[in-house]
Design a protein around this nucleic acid. Sequence first.
RNA 1: UGGGCGGUCGACUAAUGGUAGGUCAAGUGCCUUUGGAGCACUUUGUCUAGGUUCGAAUCCUAGCCGCCCAGCCA
Length: 574
Amino acid sequence: MNPLNPATEAAAATSAAPAPQSNFIRDIVVHDLEINKFGGKVQTRFPPEPNGYLHLGHAKAICLNFGLAAEFGGKTNLRFDDTNPEKEEQEYVDSIIRDVRWLGFDWEDRMFYASDYFDQLYAWAVQLIKADKAYVDDLSAEEIRKTRGTLTEPGQNSPYRHRSVEENLDLFERMRKGEFPNGSRTLRAKIDMASPNLNMRDPVMYRILHAEHHRTGNKWCIYPLYDFAHGQSDSLEKVTHSICTLEFEDHRPLYNWFIEQLGIFPSQQIEFDRLNLTYTLLSKRKLLQLVNEGHVRGWDDPRMPTLSGVRRRGYTPEALRNFCNSIGVSKTNGSIELAMLEHFLREDLNKRVPRVMAVLRPLKLVIDNYPEGQVEEMDAINNPEDASAGTRKVPFSRVLYIERDDFREIPPKQFYRISPGREVRLRYGYFVTCTNVVKDANGEVVEVHCTYDPATRGGNAPDGRKVKSTIHWASAAHAINAEVRVYDNLFLKEDPNDVEEGRDWTSNLNPNSLEVIRDAKLEPSLDKAASGARYQFERLGYFCVDPDTKPGALVFNRTVPLKDTWAKLEKRAA
RNA sequence: UGGGCGGUCGACUAAUGGUAGGUCAAGUGCCUUUGGAGCACUUUGUCUAGGUUCGAAUCCUAGCCGCCCAGCCA
């Protein structure tokens, strides 16, 4: 068997990925190419702030940026937008690098940091001061807020707006030298305090922050804000199409204003809709809160929508890419059903992952007429979707474990599994007919007894008789024990932010998002399963080996259950 | 309320003045040694009202609804 694990992933054949469908950004690129807008070049970038772990929303942005450039022979840079030393950390940089690589993208030698450009940005600020387009303001944060105006009223000019160029130059230089405390002064662009776009009301370009930066250390005590760093960083990297999310639409006029005033390469900002997924929160701030408040075990908790979380859960990069390429890109705010993501996950796993038998909630099945002490090695197919995956042997004996759910003393309508008097097939084993059950003092069934038909070895009856269902099993004497972590949605509501007055989104957390099963019974071929290896537990779902696994103590995560027609029928009947 | 941006099957997304199509979901049937997978079929849609036009999802006008913006966050 060749279970897929992360180590061999890069070498694994990429499943037939749907070609990214047309979208409005691609159309713009095609058009720009036609009119030779950027000399026939396409340059994009993925610009995360290293203040948290990447999540599925970032996967969409990554696929879009790298996909677009690749399609048109361009390049994509990885750039860390690290202009706020108070929130950024090396740990996050490292995780981002790991995650983008894992998703399958390569920025070659083009890994940059906004902090690489601090000297240039400073020089540009000086240039704007000299052009009387920027000034040092002594107003406090509070005062700036008060004089900014409101959505309907214009703001008022700062009393410091008309300082001389010389004084501004001097003050800005002294800000840089560290002569002033945090918050005492800012550098502001001189635009228009009456603009209907609040971003144009003399936005702050630099603030004083006596804080150590994860890369520049204590070199700086003033740091540029996003608006004074992002566009120029794009420009320096000759980014042709600067793709960002919708909330930056209002910033585009400012983005363009700085580029025009500075007379630098005119990168073009294009905004698209953020990814929203049902039953999922995609906000770094809230994910951080989940981690900090201990609602999950960490950024890579398999219930987290972070890339490290879904990786640990058993998602494949291929599934994620196929999903991202299929959901489209637009400007409408919507929410994609989680079922869509899971579809692409199952589609990929189904084709590539070996099948194996595992019993999660064991119930003893005794075959009364099977010879005591006899063991047969049954042939089992590793992957019916892939003949090259071959076969394996699975030991069969008199006492087996079956799934508790596969037995009903009184079978409901349409329940085809084991119940008294009914014949079913044990996968790769024999036909067995349930004869009676043993109950404990509480009346709970603890043992199911049956007889087998020796003529049906392997699972076929020579007389051609059919059976309604096939049951998976594990030989009691040979099964290995494992812990299995079964996950459900982290949130109870489709929209986790949908809360009644006075409550917050954490009240929508699903208290049963994790169920730990400690005594699952697995077929013995799994005893050497390596961390990260993925399997389909037949009839149950896809599972992968968690890194918590220790020698002799296997731990599996349920990646996603198989579609379950019976569960659906049962639910509908209820 | 000022500004910006949106509204196409249940969800997502195409159609760029000329047959409203695809994927997911849902349903029906076939097939099946996984009630898995696969195959076939089916249901449901252009926010509203006017207008332009031979012809409008697309253009115009007026509404309605939703999202974003008042950080020295990004």
